[in-house]
Amino acid sequence: MAAGNWKMNTTPSEGQALAEGIITAAGPPATKVVFGVPAIQLMQIKEITAKHEGYYVAAQNMHHEDKGAYTGELSAAMLADAGIDYVILGHSERRDYFGEDDHLINTKINKALAAGILPIYCCGEKLDIREAGSHEMIVGKQIEQALFSLAPEQMEQVVIAYEPVWAIGTGVTASPQQAQDMHQFIRTQIANQFGQSVADGTTILYGGSVKPANAEELFSMPDVDGGLVGGASLSAENFVPIIKAL
């Protein structure tokens, strides 16, 4: 899977041109391609991807309540009714800027699954954690708190994105072996809780300064199933080679 997280970038007209340009340049993809777009563009980009097999749309967040006085928020039911395929949950920016923790994210994951939306669950460690050698402990705790309460059939619907926070938007990338080691650790955690077949079927993406220059090497690792791509997803010139590296 190649998932692009546009974050708070592109106007609706720019987003339309970007999605259409990527689809035209990439053609029918060999993997799933997901556009994680600003809320104002969700239905617009869904109309585009609905015409092209292999292309999907993700919301960048959703609220954990079904409805109510939550100005500016979107519920799982709203996203489902609009035909949105995926929702990105637990991104490090949501954790840092909005104080979201894995207990809240677990609630969101359950709401998304109940509505028929597939969660892309983000986990990862900051630089001080990595330097202290505590990265497996921290990521393991994130996985446990957010996912271990799910039933196996629910877990089969979840995509995991490992994002070393120290490599997001910094130009620094985890080495292919560092990515593989953490992805293997995550898959082992899933296997221990849900069984090997569920773990083998779980898509685990790498997110952290994925670029055309490093995509092929990263994706060649046995437990790296694709990428959650930030800045490089904002141009066809950069995102299409990443799609084709899978």
Rank of each mutant, 00 (worst) to 15 (best):
I190M: 02
P38E: 00
I40G: 03
H91V: 14
T71A: 06
G231E: 01
H135S: 07
F185T: 08
N61W: 13
D101N: 15
W6Q: 03
I40Y: 10
V240P: 10
V34I: 15
P241V: 08
I22A: 05
E14F: 00
N106E: 14
V198A: 04
A3Y: 11
V139T: 10
I186N: 09
K67L: 03
N214P: 04
D128W: 05
A30G: 15
L74A: 09
V240G: 12
T31Q: 15
I129G: 12
R187L: 09
Q154S: 12
E237S: 14
M221Q: 15
A199C: 00
N110Y: 06
L118I: 14
S175E: 06
S209Y: 02
A215P: 05
A25I: 04
L205K: 04
I243W: 10
E100H: 08
Q193W: 01
Q196I: 03
S197V: 07
T31D: 15
F239T: 09
Q196K: 13
L104S: 12
D225P: 09
D200L: 08
I242C: 01
A2C: 07
A115M: 12
S233V: 12
E163A: 04
R130H: 14
A2R: 05
I23T: 10
M155L: 04
L218Q: 00
P12C: 12
G27H: 14
G231L: 00
G68E: 11
A82D: 09
E14T: 03
D96F: 09
M78E: 12
A146T: 01
E47D: 14
A232W: 06
E163H: 03
K32W: 07
Y162M: 00
Q193A: 03
A17W: 06
T10K: 15
T24W: 02
G124P: 01
A25R: 14
Q60C: 05
D85N: 15
G169V: 11
V158D: 07
A199F: 03
N61H: 13
I120G: 02
H135N: 13
I117E: 05
N238S: 15
A114Q: 05
I84Y: 11
V240R: 12
A215L: 08
V172Q: 08
G54W: 13
D102T: 01
G54M: 06
C122P: 03
I109R: 09
G36W: 01
D223S: 12
L218T: 02
S134K: 14
I186K: 08
A59P: 12
Y162K: 01
E216D: 12
L205N: 03
A76S: 07
A232C: 10
S235T: 15
F219S: 05
P38D: 00
P29C: 02
P38C: 01
G231M: 00
Q184N: 11
N238R: 11
S75F: 05
C122E: 06
